[in-house]
Nucleic acid binder design. Sequence first.
DNA 1: CTACTGGACGACAACGATGTCACCCAGCTA
DNA 2: TAGCTGGGTGACATCGTTGTCGTCCAGTAG
Lengths: 323, 323
Amino acid sequence: MVDVAKRAAVSVKTVSRVVNGEEGVRPDTKARVDEAIRQLGFRRNDSASDLRRGRAEGIGLIVENMSDPFYSVIGAAVERVARLQRHLLLMGSAEGSAERERDLTGAFLSRRVAGLIVVPAIEDHHWLAAELAAGTPVVFVDRPASGLSADAVLTDNDAGVRSAVEHLAARGHRNIGFLGDNPEFWTAGQRLAAFGSATAALGLRSDLTAMGPHEVEGIAALVETWTRDSDPVTALVTGNNRLSVTALRALRRVGKRLALVGFDDFELADMVEPAVTVVAQDPAAMGEQAAHLLFRRLAGEGGPARTVVLPTRLVVRDSSHLV
Amino acid sequence: MVDVAKRAAVSVKTVSRVVNGEEGVRPDTKARVDEAIRQLGFRRNDSASDLRRGRAEGIGLIVENMSDPFYSVIGAAVERVARLQRHLLLMGSAEGSAERERDLTGAFLSRRVAGLIVVPAIEDHHWLAAELAAGTPVVFVDRPASGLSADAVLTDNDAGVRSAVEHLAARGHRNIGFLGDNPEFWTAGQRLAAFGSATAALGLRSDLTAMGPHEVEGIAALVETWTRDSDPVTALVTGNNRLSVTALRALRRVGKRLALVGFDDFELADMVEPAVTVVAQDPAAMGEQAAHLLFRRLAGEGGPARTVVLPTRLVVRDSSHLV
DNA sequence: CTACTGGACGACAACGATGTCACCCAGCTA
DNA sequence: TAGCTGGGTGACATCGTTGTCGTCCAGTAG
């Protein structure tokens, strides 16, 4: 910047003014400075700018696994909003590890990012309270923070599971099995609970649940067990899209054609055999809302923590039309 | 840091030494400093550190679209390697726009990232030469840079397409159609050229190519045309996974069961009807190799630009067994 | 006892930008 | 003409770290 200033015969402060588009620079001065910038190929050093201003124009995003479509869509949505606010996206996978999540959080905070968007792993987040109080806004996505009151964007898991159960019940299914993920994951727990209350409300069996197997073999064995009965399970609800796909493979493996409704849509759900009925979430909207919440906080909005709950949409395809 | 120094009754320089794990601090001094850091909840300001050191410990990744599985897998791989080197990942989507790509590049360079990994859009990159020469390493992925000699990680498009054509020819197909993307995209052009030479080498027709329609309707119409003939097309090669899926939908729409081989694998390719034979690339390996190349440059490795070409793998499923 | 060594530590400047405040002067009013 | 105004500009301190270099002192050799 001092080189530019010399070349344009102005002070560094004036160069700074031009670079930041501030008021109060005569057009001819600005032109001289712009020309000098062009000639020297000058690029402002944002590290210095960040240091002086005390805040970096970047937002940190922590997800479980960047390559999972659910999270990458969230990431893309966050980046789109961030870009409009002239912020960069820093992104990392916590891979379900609380330690890795803390490391990433620390790294982002050390870099003085403007804010954080986090899909939290299993753990207590009260240690983040200090940073929150210090003015770095944090928004949680998909799952709320535990031990901390902060903004969050969630899916309406309860209504979503209920719509799945009601849909199957309306088609005559009485014994519906639920395949969920480890209930230590908040969403898995929510969906399990929702399954319990939805089935109970309809007078259906609520005990056909398994939060266990994730592999084709395990699920295939489970299906065998559930269908050996004289009063067999005739339909399945799966707690996330990985389980939906795995269940589909398992059903093929054992040659049973149970009805199936999956939580969370996935690409080609309409092209597989049978096309899978799903409770669709809207990850792009989740990312977008989270980013909007964050930037509203950055714009100075106060008030208590907000929670945005997004609705689900039942997308009926073939798999729920099976006997 | 000065607060920590006061509390531990040492100089800031000593705190800096402890924070950076430098030699030459007595264990008891280090313990005092650590304790002060803990008590005050001190976190080093990386903006200041970056400024002083002249380089940020982050690497910038520019892809076409973060939410596309191909790119998000690259991103996850890059992040994994970056993490091991204690670097953060900054990521953005250029969305096929050269301008947006330049903006992102500029933003990353302003932040003085350690290096850049770029999936380039259509354009000339000689303007990057100055930065490259100035010591910021750049690695290109999926497509080489134009007008610039830089490291790159590519897929062996030629061998991949050839394996697809040979596979279909071996199953008796003589008239094979090629559905590609806009040939301004480097990969699309490569694959088209590869299709031409592979068919020519086998004495097959090389003129059944369309770099045009991307929607179900357009492709359906094209298929109708190609199969109306007395000497009809009996097999299709698609140039990327979006086209494979769209072609699959189009074939269903018009009720034709042509053989199909897609370039690039996709999730559930084995579960759709028919399961799709593909030429699989390895995006995770591409991201990993690119990151390794980058960090080798950062470690001071000199020498001319390297190009790593990764092999493809033909994954035979049902769609290529159709008549 | 003196001279020397080397390890531990601190003072200070510098990295490149920006906020504050003072300055200058053209153009105005009284 | 003297005094004011206010827009354009610059000098300087400052953000939080780290590189350089000098100081201090305990321990050792002569």
